[in-house]
């Protein structure tokens, strides 16, 4: 473990990975309880188009993806409200369109190969210092915004109508959650890639929800699973020469399995 931490690229990966996984886990608890677990997957596909656009325009793909993803997530929200679509239909429409657009842009940009693959499957070990600082700052901001609105978000997730009567501006908070999800997806993409990012959002949160007797405990447990998975996943990937993204997700899955197996009815 000591040797593991002497490599600066591993230090950077661990620092960014821990913060990003915390943001994913905290947000994930709210998304699952809002029956919105799949929005992570949908927005990740849209992010693919954003990355491809960034590569096409030769601009910073992360920044382009961030703007693209926020715009698309607000689009999903409006589509849901206005078009009267059932459940996940809006997500399916927007995400598949994003993938289609991404594919075309990637082909047009002529040199998509390695760069695009890194975004699809993650490149946490190649993260540079500027990206670490940005990721840590954004992830901390996501967690801070949720902390400030914690009770309002909990209230509206539990009982939307009563929350509204009590003065919670539910539509404003819907938009807030949507934007936070976009930011978190783009960050998570750095750690495990577009194809696996919804795992970072869903698995630790689902594990936290398995065992908790209170909302606070569910969030703390999700954070524990998320950070342990990043640390253990990176260490295992380093020791066994495995891809970091896949290893982190599999460690998440193992921890989820352990908690599910030990689940006992609680009062």
């Amino acid at each position: 473990m000591g040797a593991f931490l002497t490599y600066s690229f591993l230090q950077r990966a661990l620092g960014a990975g821990l913060f990003i996984s915390l943001a994913c886990a905290v947000l994930g608890v709210f998304l699952i309880l809002r029956k919105d677990a799949m929005i992570g997957d949908g927005l990740a596909h849209i992010t693919f188009a954003g990355v491809a656009l960034g590569l096409f325009l030769r601009m910073m793909p992360l920044a382009v993806a961030l703007v693209f993803s926020i715009a698309a997530s607000l689009g999903i929200m409006k589509l849901k409200e206005r078009a009267g679509l059932y459940g996940d239909t809006a997500i399916a429409i927007v995400s598949s369109s994003g993938l289609a657009l991404g594919l075309i842009l990637a082909t047009l940009s002529r040199n998509p190969g390695v760069a695009l693959l890194n975004y699809l499957f993650g490149e946490i070990l190649a993260i540079d210092t500027v990206e670490v600082v940005l990721s840590v700052a954004l992830a901390a901001a996501v967690v801070a915004v949720i902390a400030v609105n914690y009770r309002k978000l909990m209230f509206m997730t539990f009982d939307r109508e009563s929350a509204q009567v009590a003065g919670v501006r539910v539509r404003r908070l819907d938009a807030l959650i949507t934007v936070l999800t976009s930011v978190t997806i783009v960050l998570g993409m750095k750690v495990v890639g577009i194809l696996l990012v919804s795992a970072l959002i869903v698995i630790p949160a689902a594990a936290g929800l398995l065992r908790a007797s209170s909302f606070k405990k569910a969030i703390l447990l999700a954070c524990g699973v998320a950070t342990a998975s990043v640390a253990a996943g990176l260490a295992a990937a380093f020791a066994l020469d495995l891809p970091a993204s896949g290893t982190i997700v599999l460690v998440n899955l193992i921890l989820f399995g352990v908690l599910a197996a030990r689940r006992t009815p609680r009062a």
């Binding site: 009770r151 539990f158 009563s162 929800l209 209170s214």
Partner: peptide, 25 residues
Amino acid sequence: HFDPLFPASVREVVSMAFQASKRGL
């Protein structure tokens, strides 16, 4: 008719009422 798996304690459910007049944790 709320989600029976929602992990809120009784204390947390009652505390929700205080949200409008305050922020944060």
